[in-house]
Design a protein around this nucleic acid. Structure first.
Lengths: 239, 239
DNA sequence: TAGGCTATGTGCGCTACCGAACATCCAATC
DNA sequence: GATTGGATGTTCGGTAGCGCACATAGCCTA
């Protein structure tokens, strides 16, 4: 089974006890996750949960007028589709691939039965869910109080944490959609960061040159979320 | 046991299977919840979960500079302290009584053991948690896109749904703290609503005269959250 | 190598909200 | 019934972000 080590790049999968892993691994299907793919749509019952490996997924809400706002972001540390094990089957939000890559998925019925079957799985998924809740809560706070510039830094850092390198493949237009702001606002923010030497970009590619600099410019929200993820999800738990 | 019928004003408690209810009821402690009481503080491990009966509790995040923003609101339909059964034991937010009243509470160890013991309890609490997640997500969206006036209407409606009558005991200053805006902004918004005949108020008391009118003025966020609560928490499930 | 499409840069007037300062006024207490 | 402290009303300049319009410029394709 050549897939296995690859799949365990996902931290939740990596934290599974061996017994669960052995049961799950033949059921996991590795999938490509191209930019823009919609994993689930508002109000629609999910067919799978997705464990990102190298991709990043945005959870966002699309308003009646078409405007949108990101609620949270999920990468290799997490799972997309919590409403399956939380019991609601669907949510009012949408999940879109924000950064292309790979992932793997498990059919809905499997995750639901596995969730109740093992205390370890249940606790792992619920602790992840609590971390996700913190991210959502902090997004609400940040949207209320912080400047676009600060939010842009936060967003770059959250994305960076979920990527291997320091380059994001991402247009400013897309970032604007995620943040729920104007594209021009992102352009201005990005220009400031580039002039300050923190990032460098060309059409659809952003390289982060000075991560520390971004951390200095962002608001406390980033650190709050990071700390909570670190606290709740000790990476690479004994397995 | 004279408490029992009273306590089941909380919808989660009301939805408990009889077997659980009989085990829980002697352990539930009815408590007064005065305005401003802090049920839990950021980062501190909780000792109890609280089931509001006639009170309303705000979950909010307080920033380093003292500014705050409400993340969600909990009334008789829910429970305060989800991090106990989610496994994190604490959260970065704070829970404050926003509208005085009564509630009852259960020690932390009890809820943790009960959570794993019965599938019914687990599913009930997790579905509630999913509804709460939707509320948080929509708060983030609303903070991003909607006007103070719309948010004020949403806030009044969310509070109204968790009260018996149509009068809120609440100063504009407090509302401003919850929404994370200036007090003056709330004053202006409230004035508009009063002039339109939708509400009427005096020093710390707000009467809602025209609920439908508020619904017409608010954004879609209120309805999204309401629909999701109705969907996930069929009130007074067979018990 | 010449288009043409898409991404980015820039300017403009506009509005909602902020921060601060201050006026008013109700209601509980003495 | 006078006092007073907290709640509400009002104004004003400042600013971040919006919507719109349009300019520039990099990359892909023909």
């Amino acid at each position: 089974m050549p897939l296995s080590p690859e799949l365990r790049k996902n931290q939740l999968l990596a934290s599974l006890p061996d017994s669960e892993w052995e049961r799950w691994s033949p059921l996991l299907e590795q999938v490509d996750m191209p930019l823009g793919e919609v994993l689930y749509e508002s109000g629609v019952t999910l067919n799978h949960v997705y464990f990102p490996l190298t991709s990043i997924v945005s959870l966002l809400y699309v308003m009646e007028n078409g405007a949108s706002a990101e609620i949270a972001v999920v990468g290799y540390e997490g799972v997309v589709g919590i409403s399956l094990f939380m019991g609601g089957e669907s949510t009012p939000s949408r999940a879109v691939v924000q950064s292309a890559g790979t992932g793997c998925r498990l059919p809905a019925e499997i995750i639901k039965s596995e969730f109740g079957r093992s205390g370890a799985v249940l606790h792992l998924l619920l602790r992840y869910t609590q971390a996700l809740i913190t991210q959502m809560a902090q997004t609400a706070v940040c949207n209320r109080h912080h400047s676009l510039d600060q939010q842009l830094c936060r967003w770059l850092l959250l994305s960076l944490d979920r990527l291997q390198g320091s380059e994001l493949v991402m247009t400013q237009e897309l970032i604007a959609n995620m943040l729920g702001v104007r594209r021009e606002g992102v352009t201005e923010g990005a220009l400031k960061l580039q002039k300050a030497g923190l990032i460098q970009y060309t059409r659809g590619h952003i390289s982060v040159l000075d991560r520390k600099g971004l951390e200095d410019r962002t608001c406390e929200c980033y650190a709050v979320v990071k700390r909570e993820y670190d606290r709740l999800l000790p990476s690479r738990k004994a397995n």
